[in-house]
Amino acid sequence: MENTDKIVDILKDVTGLDNIGDNLDQDLFATGILDSMATVEVLVTLQDNFGIEVPVSEFDRSQWSTINKISDRVKELE
């Protein structure tokens, strides 16, 4: 749960949207919340905060499309 909160904070910082944690299963790419630039920003921040290595080509959009999915992937990589 703690991870999810951290991820929500990161996404809030990057996108500037306060309501981003309302729906943890919302598709962040389909809704246009994350563009390429924001995606990389999230990626770099995740790396710094969790100490994980996420190469850009690992970032398969279907596997990282919602907050819950990001949280699962981070847990796997930690």
Binding site: S36, T39, V40, E41, L43, V56, S57
Partner: peptide
């Protein structure tokens, strides 16, 4: 181009 040039370049610049 997005995945192998743009995002990689941004990633590098940011890191």
């Amino acid at each position: 181009f997005r995945d192998f040039i743009y995002m990689r370049l941004i990633f590098l610049m940011m890191k």
